[in-house]
Design a protein around this nucleic acid. Structure first.
Length: 274
DNA sequence: AACGCGCCCTGTCCGC
DNA sequence: TGCGGACAGGGCGCGT
């Protein structure tokens, strides 16, 4: 599932492929990946003949920045992929939902098997509003140990659930939430408010380390994720708890446990994590 | 207000 | 071998 490191990898790939390109045509194959209120007609007429000035990221969202302060915000959901038709793997795509034709003859493809992803078009004000709904960027200087503690102390929810809340911290999904909790030696079920100051600091540090390592590895391909070139990420073998239930802990060999919190799996080492 | 649940969707895996 | 059902989960709407 694409989270911050996967979105970041895609953004870096796309910067090489599409920055400066001009959209010549827009084809919407699956209308249900468009945000509510965004019609294929509106998307087509807004983007046609418009230049892509840059590609950036906010949380797990890939953001295509167009001239005229217009942004296409791409949330990849579970199985979303954004790939240039020029990349050799593009021929493998089987669920193309939206196709942006570019002036150089290539195309930017949005592919999404399950169609949980979402494309939203925002002007300057709309983007400001959307941006304000998202929490702190975990790799930014704003994400201090103090900030982490302020976030956790306001909540009674299990800490794993808090980490998934994009309104509080942007970009963390189930894989990196569990990996960071393991590295910080905190159990997923612990109530956020109950974490000590040293634990919230350890968790903040662990989040930043694991996200950076995952970016360096070009993301985790657990099942469906592909980068902007259609290639798999290399972080999966480095996962220490996610998807490893029953397998020995990499530190103490105790079998990793799987529990379910609000309908989502959580993984932890019952010996290493308190 | 904060929290948790159910739903959207389809590829994959398991058991019979 | 084939098929039905369970499962995976990000984000959102809704009820408590």
């Amino acid at each position: 599932m694409p989270e911050l490191p996967e979105a970041e990898t895609i953004v870096r790939d796309l910067q090489d492929r599409v920055a400066g390109a001009r959209v010549t045509a827009v084809r919407v194959i699956w209308e249900d990946v468009l945000a509510p209120g965004l019609s294929p007609h509106k998307l087509r007429h807004s983007l046609r003949n418009r230049q892509i000035e840059g590609v950036s990221r906010r949380g797990k969202n890939v953001v295509l920045e167009f001239e005229g302060d217009l942004r296409l915000i791409i949330n990849l959901g579970m199985t979303g992929r954004v790939i240039s038709s020029r990349s050799p793997r593009a021929v493998e795509l089987q669920h193309i939902a939206v196709r942006l034709a570019l002036a150089d003859g290539s195309a930017l493809l949005y592919d999404d098997a399950r169609r949980f992803g979402c494309l939203d078009l925002r002007d300057a004000d709309g983007w400001r509003a959307r941006n304000a709904e998202l929490g702190v960027e975990p790799l930014s200087a704003d994400f201090t140990a103090r900030r982490m503690h302020e976030i956790t102390r306001k909540s009674t929810t299990p800490i794993r659930n808090l980490l998934l809340d994009q309104k509080r911290i942007a970009g963390i999904g189930n894989i990196y939430a569990n990996e960071a909790l393991f590295r910080a030696r905190v159990r997923p079920r612990r109530r956020a408010r109950r974490l000590t100051r040293s634990e919230t600091r350890a968790l903040r540090d662990a989040l930043r380390v694991v996200l950076r390592e995952a970016i360096a590895a070009r993301g985790t391909t657990f099942s469906d994720y592909r980068d902007g070139e259609g290639e798999s990420g290399a972080f999966e073998p480095k996962l220490r708890v996610y998807g490893r239930d029953g397998l020995p802990c990499t530190v103490c060999r105790t079998p990793i446990k799987r529990i379910v919190l609000t309908n989502r799996s959580a993984f932890y080492c019952p010996r290493c994590q308190r």
